[in-house]
Simulated assay, not measured.
Amino acid sequence: MKIWIDADACPRVIKDIVYRASARLGIPVCLVANNDLSRAHSPLVSSVRVSASDNAADDYIVEHAAPTDLVITADIPLAARIVARDGVAIDPRGDVYTEENVGERLSTRNLLNELREAGIVQGGPEPLGMTDRQKFASALDRLLTRRLKERR
């Protein structure tokens, strides 16, 4: 099992939570981004720099993540691709993407993008708050615990 992080837009505090879980459980982490990344000083944490082309990081993660891995991303199209391959993805706010919810989230995302382009809606999601961090940490712990039990 490995944890993949779509790292270009992943908040530092979320990466730190993942690094702590990785160290505690001995699970490798791979950050994928199209720019240089600072990373934790741990042999369990690696990084991959991909080209700056659209979806390069997403494509890399989809090509390399196994169904037993966990992907952390706020990118709903990437999450949809992971779920379609029977993988597990979680967003930085602690919401787990599933077959049941990813299609609806993708539709909502597309609608909001259209409304933003038309100038009807402005802005994006609220900043990550303490509740979001706690929800993420709890969801991550639950997913990793379940995955580790499945491996035994």
Rank of each mutant, 00 (worst) to 15 (best):
I17L: 15
A84H: 01
A23C: 07
T73L: 08
S51E: 15
G124C: 00
E104G: 14
K2G: 03
A80V: 08
G26V: 00
S22R: 04
G123E: 06
L44W: 06
L115V: 03
T145S: 09
T68H: 04
G103Q: 08
G26D: 00
N35G: 09
G87I: 13
R24M: 07
E117K: 15
E150F: 07
D36T: 14
H64A: 11
R20G: 05
R24A: 10
V50H: 07
S46N: 12
R20E: 14
A137R: 05
V45S: 08
V32L: 10
I27Y: 00
G123T: 10
T98S: 15
L112P: 00
A80G: 06
C10Y: 04
A137S: 12
G87M: 08
S51K: 07
I5P: 03
P125E: 09
H41R: 09
W4A: 02
D16F: 11
G94L: 04
V121L: 09
D54F: 13
A74W: 10
E100I: 04
T73R: 04
E104S: 09
V45M: 13
N110P: 01
A21M: 12
V29P: 01
L140I: 03
A57C: 13
I76F: 02
R85H: 12
D141E: 15
T98R: 11
L143C: 02
P77A: 03
R116A: 09
D16L: 15
G87K: 04
D8Y: 08
G103Y: 10
T98G: 05
I5N: 02
I120C: 02
E100W: 02
E117P: 01
R81M: 10
L106V: 03
R85Q: 11
L78A: 03
L140Y: 05
V29H: 02
R93V: 06
K2A: 06
Y97C: 01
D75I: 07
N34D: 15
L78V: 03
T145L: 07
D95P: 00
A40E: 14
E114A: 13
P43L: 10
R20Y: 12
R142Y: 14
N101A: 06
A65F: 07
N101T: 09
P28W: 07
R49Y: 07
G103V: 11
V50W: 11
I14T: 12
F136R: 02
I82A: 00
V13C: 09
R93N: 03
I72E: 00
D75H: 09
I5M: 10
V83W: 01
I61V: 10
I72D: 00
S46A: 12
D91S: 03
S47T: 13
D95S: 03
A52Q: 14
V13A: 15
K135D: 13
K135Y: 04
N34G: 14
V32N: 01
D86C: 08
A65T: 05
P77M: 09
A139T: 08
L37C: 02
I61Y: 05
V50Y: 09
A74Q: 15
K135V: 04
R39C: 10
R39H: 11
G119T: 02
R39A: 14
K2Q: 12
S38H: 10
G129V: 11
A21V: 11
P125C: 01
D86S: 08
D141F: 11
V13I: 15
A9H: 04
L106I: 06
P77L: 11
